[in-house]
């Protein structure tokens, strides 16, 4: 089952990407890339609307095989999660929980004084935790 978690920086450069299925990594990355446009749209159009206060953006779009969800922090860091359409175990609440955990992990990583914001996230602690988050949900 495919699963992908991506952290995208302010300038839309990828900071971190993890997939459970190496074979289909390119395909999944493509979805992440496409999702950024939707994220941008959502952030602009939702301006002023009360529901847009939430950091969680919900499902961005879906394809035949995948569902793509998004989340944007107040610091304009985007989190994208791609899951298989056939994965029915993950409902809205579970997806929210994944984002909440990911957000927590990301803020901790930013607080590492040796991490330079905007650089790729290569720290072991972060990677291990995200991999765990992924394997717990596949």
């Amino acid at each position: 089952m495919a699963f992908c978690i991506a952290v995208i920086g302010k300038d839309n450069a990828p900071l971190y990407l993890a997939t459970s299925d190496v074979e289909r990594e390119l395909d999944l990355q493509y979805h992440v890339h496409a999702a950024l446009d939707v994220v941008e749209e959502k952030c602009v159009i939702g301006k002023g609307a009360p529901e847009s206060k939430e950091l969680y953006l919900g499902q961005l779009f879906s394809t035949e095989n995948h569902k793509i969800y998004g989340f944007v922090t107040n610091s304009k860091i985007k989190f994208i999660v791609v899951i298989d359409s056939s994965n029915i175990a993950l409902r809205e609440n579970e997806v929210r929980a994944i984002f909440r955990n990911l957000h927590m992990l990301y803020t901790d990583a930013v607080c590492n004084p040796f991490y330079i914001p905007g650089e790729q996230l290569t720290f072991k602690k972060f990677d291990r935790a995200v991999q765990k988050l992924m394997s717990g949900n596949v």
Binding site: D108, C111, P113, F114, F123, K124
Partner: peptide
């Protein structure tokens, strides 16, 4: 050291 991860060269 709550958030710290030392780079290997340090």
């Amino acid at each position: 050291t709550e958030f710290v991860e030392l780079p290997s060269d340090l």
